[in-house]
């Protein structure tokens, strides 16, 4: 195996950074700090996409990098921060969270993701192929975060982190999806967050809190 090039090493570094942020999101109790972490994840995603775009010389990847920068580093965190400020939820903390157990589960998921992605990464011809396992791990960690959290805002951040993982999978396995699709996905995510914003206010109006344990009454009776 030839020595990895600088680009490949940098990319692996970025991938590791993304995974690290996923873990810190998993253990972060404060809503505000969580949103900041999400913005950082977007920033690393932007850096790694730009690097791939530069080294592979693909123009459309520059566009998607720009899209990431605008949407995930600035716009979405801004909308979310404004929302929590208006909902006065920025200092909310989650109490029911067993961090060590969640972390252990997370490590398990990462191993699982690497095992699953191993045979597939071997087939990839892109310089980014080693990172497919990490992308899958990010998706699964975000999934875990959505399952373990009980606050509406954190679930949404989990959802968006999952989307970051998907985006990373797209760039790492295939040099990105075609532009039309990427734009469509970005639009869907943005509209989704806006709708959720409306939704938060409705939930709060009805329940006077964004805690989701109120939302557990619809059961089979």
């Amino acid at each position: 195996m030839p020595a990895p090039t600088l680009t490949a090493q940098l990319l692996n570094g970025f991938a590791a950074g993304l995974l690290l942020i996923s873990f810190s999101m998993l253990s972060q109790r404060r809503t505000r700090a969580l949103i900041t972490l999400f913005a950082w994840q977007g920033a690393i995603l932007f850096a790694s996409t730009s690097l791939v775009a530069y080294s592979a010389g693909l123009r459309h990847l520059w566009y998607s990098a720009a899209l990431t920068l605008v949407l995930k580093v600035f716009l979405l965190p801004f909308i979310l921060l404004r929302l929590v400020r208006r909902l006065e939820a920025q200092w909310d903390t989650e109490t029911l969270l067993n961090i060590p157990t969640t972390m252990l589960l997370g490590v398990g998921l990462v191993i699982f993701a690497f095992g699953l992605a191993q045979p597939i990464s071997a087939l990839a011809t892109t310089i980014t192929r080693n990172t497919l396992g990490i992308a899958l791990a990010i998706i699964l960690l975000a999934f875990l975060m959505m399952i373990t959290r009980r606050k509406a805002v954190t679930q949404v951040v989990g959802f968006l982190a999952m989307e970051n993982g998907l985006f990373f999978a797209a760039t790492s396995a295939t040099y990105g999806m075609p532009m039309v699709v990427e734009l469509g996905i970005a639009l869907d995510v943005l509209v989704g967050v806006l709708i959720l914003g409306i939704f938060f206010f409705q939930i709060r109006e009805q329940f006077e809190s964004l805690d989701l344990h109120h939302l557990e009454t619809l059961k089979e009776d």
Partner: peptide, 29 residues
């Protein structure tokens, strides 16, 4: 905008959102 309908819509959004995210991963593969 009743409590039950908000809960139903939230569940719908999150479950289908996660589901459809998995479908996107499938599409990428």
């Amino acid at each position: 905008r009743t409590r039950a309908s908000l809960e139903a819509a939230w569940k719908y959004f999150i479950l289908c959102g996660v589901g459809i995210a998995l479908a996107l991963f499938g599409t990428i593969l």
